[in-house]
Nucleic acid binder design. Structure first.
Lengths: 78, 78
DNA sequence: CTGTAGACTTCAGTCGACT
DNA sequence: TAGTCGACTGAAGTCTACA
């Protein structure tokens, strides 16, 4: 059962965007409340960056989703 | 319910180490099988580095633990 | 509201060697 | 077996600005 993580960042970005839309806030709201840069969040959602675990936790806190649920969503999509 | 993430890396490192000991392998085994550097794994376990999400997934695969479970362990410890 | 671009600083992650 | 050190490369994350 090999995992190649080929589209890893794309999947992470998709799941982050889903969670943000679900929450009904803009990238700008998310950036302000999480303390991260808006342009960086844009890149994350488009799969252009590979976030650190700390960034994941910060985003999840603002998105009102538990990190383990987001990670499970990502696992399921891999 | 403020989270300050003050000891975030320490907690992540502790949980990673727990999982490795549970699996019964050395840092070197883990480094070889995950494709990551042994000295880096040493730093991770001691809370000296903040890993990317991709690193977490790679380590979990070798450790035979699902990423969402590791993340849940970390959440519970925060 | 979002994407992108460039320039920037900091840190993730590698590598070899030694304790 | 694990910790650490120094030097290194590439990538994380910031900031300003414009379409």
């Amino acid at each position: 059962m090999e995992k190649d993580y080929k589209d890893f960042e794309i999947i992470v970005g998709n799941k982050l965007k889903e969670a943000r839309i679900e929450k009904g806030i803009s990238q700008e709201d998310l950036s302000i409340n999480s303390g991260l840069d808006r342009s960086y969040i844009s890149m994350l959602e488009r799969g252009k960056r590979n976030p650190t675990l700390l960034v994941i936790f910060k985003l999840c806190q603002t998105l009102d989703i538990s990190p383990n649920l987001l990670i499970k969503n990502i696992e399921d999509a891999l």
